[in-house]
């Protein structure tokens, strides 16, 4: 399968698994299942993700907040959306990175204990009408200019650092920037 798994901070005991889908034809149906809680996972617009590591850093922060009982948003999955965004407004962050009915390419993110992801993955695969693609191809589906605009990244910065490194640095400091 095309899923990709990373161990998060040891203290959380949790892992992050991602699955990339393209050419999805039933987004409204999927959104409904997320809203009702039938599907428990995080879905992000693939156009705003240039590297899986961008998600890993946000998911790690979300997992630590959950473990330490200080989630800023309702669930660990909305927390990922919140940390991906630079906005301090939760509702804005969720609409910015969360999926719309018009999206075709979606990154699905699960946070789970070791080897506990199988059933949810099956459920996700069964619900989404679309193609799975290896995570290594994620950059092909990103809108790089939109990403730069979203994170307010300047040219100067990109002379000395890669885009993903600038982004993860911002995510890591979200709690106390501005």
């Amino acid at each position: 399968m095309d899923n990709y798994r990373v161990e998060l901070d040891r203290e959380t005991g949790l892992y992050c698994t991602m699955l990339l889908f393209t050419d999805i034809t039933n987004v409204p149906e999927i959104r409904e299942k997320i809203i009702t809680g039938e599907l428990r996972c995080c879905m992000v617009k693939a156009s705003l993700i240039i590297d899986a590591f961008q998600v890993v850093v946000a998911a790690n922060k979300a997992a630590l907040n959950a473990k330490q009982n200080r989630l800023i948003t309702k669930t660990i999955y909305t927390e990922i959306l919140f940390y991906l965004s630079t906005s301090k407004k939760i509702s804005r962050a969720l609409t910015e990175f969360g999926i719309n009915d018009s999206d075709k390419n979606i990154l699905v993110i699960l946070i789970h204990e070791i080897n506990e992801e199988e059933s949810t993955l099956k459920q996700v695969l069964g619900s989404i009408k679309g193609q799975t693609v290896p995570i290594s191809r994620i950059e092909e589906f990103a809108d790089v200019n939109l990403v730069k605009k979203t994170y307010k990244i300047s040219k100067d910065e990109l002379c000395i650092s890669s885009l993903v490194n600038v982004i993860v640095s911002r995510i890591s400091c979200k709690d106390f920037m501005l």
Binding site: D9, V57, N60, K61, L64, Q68, S154, D156, E157, C159, I160, S161, N165, V166, V168, S169, R170, S172, C173, D175, F176, M177
Partner: peptide
């Protein structure tokens, strides 16, 4: 951590930050 980010914005190479954990008194970086 803030200074590392600001320096980066000004076009100075600094390590990428992966986690700033004040409870553990630690900065995790590249």
């Amino acid at each position: 951590a803030r200074a590392i980010i600001r320096a980066k914005s000004a076009g100075i190479a600094t390590p990428a930050l992966y986690l700033v954990d004040v409870e553990r008194r630690s900065i995790y970086m590249e």
